[in-house]
Amino acid sequence: MVYKIRDKETGKVYEVTIDEETNEITVYDVKTGKPVKTVNMTIEELKEAGYEVEPV
């Protein structure tokens, strides 16, 4: 599923895909559409880390 996340401190917005089964999150560069990095976190962990998470 695709989400937009926003860093509450910097205001930067990222587009991510989240595999609900493995909790693998792939972060994409919004301008190029290319993957930047992959992390292993849940949506709740993202929120605790200071991100706003919205489904696209």
Rank of each mutant, 00 (worst) to 15 (best):
T38P: 03
D29C: 07
E48D: 11
K31G: 11
V39C: 15
T10K: 02
P35F: 14
E48Q: 13
K4E: 05
L46Y: 04
E15W: 15
T26E: 02
G33T: 02
P55V: 11
I5C: 07
I5Q: 00
E15M: 15
E9I: 14
T26P: 00
V36S: 05
E15H: 15
V39G: 04
E45M: 10
D29V: 02
V30D: 11
D7G: 01
V53C: 07
M1N: 10
T32Y: 04
I43A: 03
T38D: 04
I43H: 02
Y3E: 00
M1G: 10
L46W: 04
Y3L: 09
E48W: 10
E52D: 10
I18F: 15
G33E: 03
G11T: 01
M1C: 14
K8R: 11
D19H: 08
Y51I: 02
V30A: 11
K12S: 08
K8C: 11
K31A: 14
K12I: 14
I5H: 00
Y14A: 01
V13T: 08
K47N: 06
N23Y: 05
E15Q: 14
T22F: 06
Y51N: 02
Y14R: 00
I18Q: 04
E21A: 13
E15G: 10
V56H: 09
V56K: 07
V56Y: 10
V13G: 02
D29A: 02
T10P: 00
K8M: 09
K37A: 15
T42G: 06
T10D: 03
V36G: 04
G50N: 06
K37G: 13
T42F: 02
R6P: 00
G50I: 05
E54R: 05
L46N: 00
E20G: 09
E24D: 07
P55D: 08
V36W: 12
V36Y: 11
E15T: 15
K4Y: 15
T32C: 07
D29T: 02
V39N: 03
E9S: 13
I5L: 06
I18A: 04
K37Q: 08
V13D: 04
E20K: 12
Y3A: 04
T38E: 04
N40F: 15
E24M: 15
V56N: 08
V30Q: 11
K4W: 15
N23E: 06
E52R: 03
G11R: 03
G11M: 03
T22Q: 08
V39A: 06
A49V: 07
Y3H: 05
I18H: 10
M41R: 05
T42P: 02
T10V: 00
Y28K: 05
I5M: 06
E48R: 12
K34P: 01
E45I: 06
G50D: 03
K34R: 10
V30G: 09
V30P: 14
Y14L: 03
E44N: 12
T32R: 02
K31S: 12
I18W: 15
I43P: 02
E15D: 12
A49G: 07
T22G: 06
I43C: 08
T22I: 07
D29R: 01
M41T: 06
D7Q: 07
E24G: 05
I43Y: 04
I18T: 04
K31Y: 14
Y28F: 09
T17L: 09
D29Q: 02
G11N: 06
T26F: 07
T22S: 10
T10A: 01
T38Y: 10
I43M: 09
D7T: 00
T17W: 13
M41F: 09
T10N: 06
N40C: 13
D7H: 15
G50Y: 06
V13H: 05
T42A: 03
I25R: 01
R6H: 06
V56C: 11
D29E: 06
V16A: 14
V39R: 04
E24Y: 12
V16R: 00
V39S: 04
E48N: 13
E9D: 09
I25L: 10
I43N: 01
N23Q: 09
T32I: 03
V53S: 02
